[in-house]
Design a protein around this nucleic acid. Structure first.
Lengths: 215, 215
DNA sequence: GGCGCTAAAATTGGCGCCAATTTTAGGCAT
DNA sequence: ATGCCTAAAATTGGCGCCAATTTTAGCGCC
């Protein structure tokens, strides 16, 4: 048995968890969709117990929801639930914006810029899933300068809880383009050291789904 | 089989999880302590698989930590980790204070007052564990007026993550008495409708451990 | 007496089995 | 044809078994 195979087996359960998480937050598995253990076993070529631990873990993270004797399904946050999450995200990300501007090194800023440019270049070109992946990368780069790792991971977790309800933001190109503008503006604000401007952009970015929900 | 017994069996796993969680946050199981599955099986009179799911769930909640092939132990947050948690709690609980003052009904205020009084009456009289339980009750009553349930449960979860590192706050009676004064002051501020005063008290309450760590 | 090595015991972690529940399919009466 | 009742299939959830790893105990050696 090769080392690579051994490593895969050693972390099989965690690996399945992360692949399932990725498939959900990137939208490959739709909100409300039932996640039968046998299907996951097939999809990820794993044992049923690996699928079960993955589902249990993601249920703890509020990414899937559990119904006893029925199984697990991808969460489908209501408008009310999304509003609650948005309020909490603002409480965390607006203070975080100050930290980001304060702590961001030149390398951090460069990473953010690269991620924002990559996203912008993909609008109209790449698939929704690829764009969501690039979006993910941008937000990763954005919070990377945070020293408070507890804050960083909490911001990340709340974002993932919100994502399954985020469908409508990817249905029209104009919305994706608006997101891209936000990203570029954020990069500008950070580079300019303007914490307040960054806060304004983040607030607009997080609350836009509430103002433009009616297509 | 009686209905009560059936209900216990039906929710055995969840029940064990909550009992273990309670034992940890109330300090019956000490920070850093190893939690062997066979011990939990004995303590809670449950199967090993119930103990395993409880441990996995609490690991997701950052209340216990997992080391592969070694097992689980009660988290023992470092001073740095506690500072991070405190910063995040302030980001959530200071805005929450405004909501609490705004939304608290007369019944909510009465509950908070009762909980604060019960805690105050217990200082010098009750065991540490009983006092921690009353403290828990007070904080439950305090966040009950929050409409945003996502915010409420997140505040609760962060508090639980912090509790295992909270030992020194219960070693001396003077610290417990200071906490009680804080609780009574909070009740006063809420009853007076003074959101800013409540924020000041909460901030002092959450950060006091940093200023008085040296006994 | 202390240190290191080896064998036994203890513990964890993954997997498969089986009972319980839910879902689906089929037949029957209206 | 439609709705309902029953039987079969599918799915979940809990439990125990066994391999892998870690910890402990015992023993020889320096």
């Amino acid at each position: 048995m090769t080392v690579a195979t051994s490593a895969l087996i050693d972390h099989m359960h965690d690996d399945v968890t992360e692949r399932l998480r990725s498939d959900i937050v990137l939208g490959a598995l739709r909100p409300g969709e039932w996640l039968r253990q046998i299907d996951l076993q097939d999809r990820y070529n794993c044992t049923r117990s690996a699928a079960r631990t993955a589902l249990a873990t993601l249920a703890s993270a509020h990414i899937v929801e559990h119904t006893p004797n029925r199984g697990f399904r991808v969460v489908q946050p209501s408008v009310e639930a999304r509003s609650e999450i948005t309020d909490v995200r603002l409480m965390l990300e607006l203070p975080a914006a100050v930290e980001i501007v304060t702590n961001a090194s030149a390398a951090d800023i460069a990473d953010i810029r690269v991620a924002a440019d990559a996203f912008d270049a993909g609008v109209d070109v790449l698939s929704v899933q690829k764009m969501r992946s690039l979006n993910h990368r941008f937000h990763r780069a954005l919070i990377a300068p945070l020293q408070n790792t507890t804050l960083a991971s909490l911001i990340h977790e709340l974002r993932e809880r919100d994502l399954p309800g985020d469908w409508s933001n990817w249905t029209t190109t104009s919305k994706v383009r608006q997101s891209s503008r936000d990203h570029l503006d954020m990069a500008d604000a950070i580079e300019a050291g303007d914490a307040h401007a960054l806060q304004v952009i983040i607030k607009a970015h997080l609350t836009r789904w509430q103002t433009t929900e009616v297509d």
